[in-house]
């Protein structure tokens, strides 16, 4: 028996203890296959250890209590609320970005005109209108 045959046959067995006499003989002469066999035994030990754990006797009571709880509708509503809130924030973001962008686009000519205006120099109002009008007509 080759090592490859041994490992393949071992993989097809339900439990490592089910090995044939031929595999047994190979195992005693091949340290590598003996190690593979040992690992398989340890794996089965691990599984049986986990299987011996018992479920908590209180689990049934916990489940019954959960089933008695009224449906918490806020949990169901939460994804909808989150979606709507995200959309509102997104739209507000776009609107505020547009407002900021448009306020930043101040025409240099307009700002000069405004400076005159805010200096209470009413005489410049006509000039301002003229400047702005000329500018927009271009």
């Amino acid at each position: 028996m080759t090592c490859n045959e041994f490992t393949t046959e071992l993989s097809s067995l339900k439990y490592p203890s089910d090995i044939s006499q031929e595999m047994q003989n190979h195992r005693t002469t091949c340290p590598q296959c003996a190690r593979v066999y040992h690992e398989a035994v340890v794996l089965m030990q691990f599984i049986s250890e986990e299987k011996t754990l018992k479920v908590s006797p209180f689990l049934k009571t916990h489940i019954a209590a959960k089933l008695d709880e009224p449906l918490n509708t806020s949990w169901y509503a939460r994804p909808a609320i989150l979606t709507v809130a995200s959309i509102i924030v997104f739209i507000l973001g776009i609107v505020s970005a547009n407002i900021l962008e448009s306020s930043e686009k101040i025409n240099p000519m307009e700002s000069i005109a405004s400076d005159y205006y805010f200096q209470n120099n009413y005489g410049t109002q006509l000039e301002e209108i003229w400047i702005n009008t000329n500018y927009y007509e271009e």
Binding site: T7, T8, L10, S11, S12, R35, V36, E39, A40, V42, L43
Partner: peptide, 10 residues
């Protein structure tokens, strides 16, 4: 699954 476990544990 058994074959892969064998490889992983070796």
């Amino acid at each position: 699954a058994r074959k892969n476990l064998q490889k992983e544990l070796d």
